[in-house]
């Protein structure tokens, strides 16, 4: 574990708490894409199957995995059941098959081993890279976002961004260790946040509302 990854994981954790806080305090999931949230459930469930295969890493690792699975399911419960009336499917229109199809094909071709668990692991990495697209698409459509929602996205973006220095650090400290699947997907994932961060830094952090130019 290095500092980049620790802060990244804590930022990931923070993003989930920010999202929960947003939903609970406003009693609304307005502005949140349930499609993106559903994709995260799929990401965590397919990636963390190793919880059940006896490949124990650490208490930290297992607790985080369980938390990510549990909290993502809880968010779906909040959006689909508890605050269902505040969920507007008419603006959450990104087609999931555009994401699920290509990522499934990629996982079948590019994986470390053609086994059930390894293909699912690769799938979860590719899926995570693009899971934010329905959310960003929704933001683009509505052209604005609540400030708290932008903090959620910023924390997620920071989490992904920090994994890159983590890999560089690991490359130099662990004898050239590199995970090409995670690195390529991670760079793509981070790149998706560039536009968002531009508006976040120039507007939200200056105290203005998040609004996209018309």
């Amino acid at each position: 574990m290095n500092l980049f990854r620790l802060v990244a994981d804590l930022s990931h954790l923070a993003s989930i708490f920010i999202l929960l806080h947003k939903i609970q305090t406003t009693r609304s999931c307005r502005g949140i894409s349930i499609k993106t949230q559903l994709l995260y459930v799929l990401v965590f469930v397919t990636r963390y199957l190793d919880l059940f295969t006896g490949d124990f890493v650490s208490i930290y690792n297992s607790v985080m995995k369980l938390f990510f699975i549990g909290s993502s399911c809880y968010i779906i419960y909040l959006m689909r059941i508890k605050y269902k009336p505040t969920n507007d499917p008419s603006i959450d229109t990104f087609r999931l098959e555009y994401i699920l199809g290509p990522t499934a094909v990629l996982a079948l071709i590019f994986n470390y081993k053609f086994t059930f668990l390894e293909v699912l692991w690769a799938f979860s990495i590719y899926l995570e890279a693009v899971a934010i697209l329905p959310q960003l698409f929704m933001l683009q459509r509505t052209g604005e976002a609540e400030t708290i929602t932008t903090h959620y996205l910023a924390a997620l973006g920071i989490y992904r961004g920090l994994y890159i220095p983590n890999w560089i650090y690991r490359y130099f400290t662990e004898g050239g260790a590199i995970d090409p699947i995670a690195v390529v997907a991670g760079i793509v994932q981070t790149a998706l946040y560039v536009d968002f961060f531009y508006v976040y830094f120039t507007k939200v952090l200056q105290g203005q509302k998040f609004e996209l130019p018309a």
Binding site: V57, G175, G176, D179
Partner: peptide, 10 residues
């Protein structure tokens, strides 16, 4: 170069 999956990453 050691290419592979680091099993400890989330």
């Amino acid at each position: 170069l050691v290419s592979g999956k680091p099993k400890d990453e989330l």
